[in-house]
Amino acid sequence: MNGLLGMKLGEGGCAEIYEWEDKSKVIKLAKSHTAMEALANEFGNTQAVWEKGLTVPRPYELTEVDGYPGMVTERIYGESLMERFMQLFMQSSADRAWTDSDDENIRITARSLSSIHSHVIPSMPPQREALRWHLHSARYLTLDEKKRVVERLDRLPVKHQLCHGDPNPGNILMRDSEPVVIDWMDASTGNPEADLAEYIIMIRYSVLPPGLPVDVPGFFDSVREHIISVFSEEYERLTGLAYREVEQWLVPLAARKLNVGSIGEEEKQRLLEFIRAEL
Score class of each variant (00 low, 15 high):
R107Q: 08
L250H: 02
Y60K: 01
P252M: 03
N45R: 11
H117P: 07
D144F: 04
V56T: 05
Y77Q: 11
A254N: 02
F43V: 03
I121A: 00
Q87I: 12
V230L: 01
W133S: 14
K146V: 07
W184P: 13
G70H: 05
K25I: 02
N191P: 00
E236K: 09
I201V: 15
W184A: 09
E178T: 14
E233Y: 01
A242H: 11
L162M: 06
D95W: 10
Y18I: 13
W98C: 05
N2F: 13
T189Y: 01
G10H: 05
Q248M: 08
D102N: 15
E74K: 13
L141G: 03
S24D: 10
K159H: 11
R75P: 05
L141I: 03
M1R: 08
Q87P: 02
L272D: 11
R75K: 11
R175H: 06
V260I: 14
Q269S: 10
V149N: 06
R152A: 13
L238H: 03
T189Q: 06
W20L: 01
N2R: 13
E247C: 04
E83Q: 14
S92L: 03
D103W: 00
F274C: 09
G78S: 01
V207I: 12
S118D: 11
L135R: 07
L62H: 01
V56S: 02
D166W: 14
L131K: 02
R256S: 04
E273W: 11
V214Y: 11
A40F: 12
G264N: 12
E278N: 02
D166T: 09
E273H: 12
C14N: 14
M71K: 06
L135G: 03
A277H: 09
P169D: 05
D221W: 04
E193N: 11
L212R: 04
Y243M: 14
S24T: 12
A242R: 13
S93Q: 13
Y243L: 15
G3M: 07
I182L: 03
E273R: 13
I263Y: 12
E16T: 09
N259P: 04
F219W: 07
I227P: 00
H119S: 10
S93M: 10
L143A: 14
Y243V: 11
S114W: 01
V251R: 13
G211K: 02
D144W: 06
S177A: 04
V223S: 00
V260L: 15
G70D: 06
Y235S: 11
S80E: 02
M71R: 09
E83A: 15
M71N: 06
P169M: 05
P59E: 07
C163E: 00
P192V: 01
K23N: 15
Q248V: 15
S24Y: 03
R244A: 12
M174K: 02
D176P: 09
L241R: 08
H134A: 13
N191V: 01
L153C: 10
V149L: 08
A197D: 03
G264F: 12
K25W: 06
D195P: 08
R175W: 05
E245T: 06
A40W: 12
L5M: 07
A242D: 10
F231R: 00
E42R: 05
K146H: 04
A254P: 06
V230F: 00
L272V: 15
V49G: 13
H160K: 15
D176S: 13
